[in-house]
């Protein structure tokens, strides 16, 4: 278990104004001489601690006791960015071991997963540790494991994912990157609709900047298209998978038309019969598939539009069917697509 709090567990309930070691400080009330609009009704503990914090900031105090005070404040309000900022500066000024701080913050990060500050604090610590720790890679690798633990409680937590992506790019070591695709695949096996995992996949495969010639983009694209087709076959009405497919085609400037055979399987009313020849390149929709699915229709219309000429008419037909039948909420948008195509 990480060490959660430091020196004064005996007098935990005590207010700062009651502590003898804080008697040298004159607390500063939040509002002096004015009657604030829309005030918050603070608990006595929060009011007390933040009054001492304002005094510390004003005096520019750098000391061990600041660490306790800021810890108490962020425990009550993890979004108190000034307390985080002051804590970080104090840690650095006191040359406090930052790996100890990182561990102290583990339980905190899980508890306050949705707060920006808990993740940014770790980012500051990791940034400093990269240049100061004896083996920064092992710290980064431990951190990746910690993030997996955090994400297991909330698989779509935005800041946690963003932080993971930063960490990988910042340390940029093959040893760290190599576990990412298997991790994404595990997550997508549990929930193929987890868009955060799809985005992470994109970051790992296409966002990472590599040296020229390090990988064969053609091979990677082939692998990614095959993987995505399988995921679409499993649950065709999944916008995350279709968006990924569109994204990688656009990124590699691959014509949408190259996937026409596959897309047509998903844009017709009925799934093809069992007796059809198995085409590994174009996996068929699963038995429960609800077809035609709107993302496939949209994709097919984009193919027609891409081809142009006579095919534009087919695109228009599909957009009309989306607006009138398959995706009526976006009728205005589909009408706009028709108008745009006609105006070209």
């Amino acid at each position: 278990m990480p060490r959660v709090t430091s020196n004064n567990s005996d007098d935990e309930a005590q207010l700062y104004c009651e502590k003898s070691e804080w008697q040298d400080i004159t607390p500063i009330p939040q509002y002096d001489g004015i009657n604030p609009i829309a005030p918050i009704f603070y608990t006595p503990e929060y009011k007390d601690a933040t009054e001492y914090f304002r005094a510390i900031v004003k005096a520019d105090e750098v000391s061990e006791r600041v660490l306790q005070l800021t810890y108490d404040i962020i425990s009550m309000n993890p979004a108190h960015y000034s307390a985080w900022q002051y804590r970080y500066r104090t840690l650095v000024a006191l040359k406090h071991p930052l790996d100890v701080e990182l561990e102290l913050m583990d339980a905190f990060a899980i508890k306050f997963l949705k707060t920006y500050q808990v993740w940014h604090h770790r980012r500051l610590l990791l940034t400093a540790l990269r240049s100061s720790a004896p083996s920064p890679l092992s710290i980064a690798s431990k951190e990746l494991a910690f993030i997996i633990r955090a994400l297991s409680t909330d698989t779509k937590n935005y800041h946690t994912w963003s932080y993971r992506q930063w960490l990988l790019a910042f340390f940029d070591d093959e040893e760290l990157w190599e576990g990412e695709l298997p991790y994404v695949e595990r997550l997508l096996e549990t929930d193929v609709r987890n868009n955060s995992a799809w985005h992470h996949r994109y970051f790992v495969v296409w966002g990472r900047v590599r040296a020229e010639g390090e990988i064969d983009v053609g091979d990677v694209l082939k692998r990614e298209i095959a993987y995505t087709k399988d995921q679409i076959a499993l649950a065709p009405n999944n916008p995350s998978a279709w968006n990924y497919l569109r994204g990688i085609l656009e990124h590699t400037k691959t014509p949408f038309n190259s996937l026409r055979t596959f897309v047509e399987l998903y844009s017709t009313q009925t799934a093809p019969g069992e007796e059809d020849i198995v085409d590994l390149d174009n996996p068929k929709p699963g038995p429960g598939a609800q077809l035609p699915c709107a993302p496939a229709l949209e994709f097919l219309a984009d193919i027609h539009e891409e081809m142009g000429g006579e095919q534009t008419k087919k695109a228009i037909e599909i957009w009309k069917s989306l607006g009138n039948e398959y995706d009526t909420m976006r009728k205005k948008y589909w009408e706009f697509r028709v108008k745009e195509a006609l105006s070209v």
């Binding site: 918050i40 009704f41 603070y42």
Partner: peptide
């Protein structure tokens, strides 16, 4: 009247 105590989480967003 102001905000109840659970808005302490917003005290850095006054």
């Amino acid at each position: 009247q102001g905000f109840p105590a659970h808005y302490i989480s917003q005290s850095a967003s006054q």
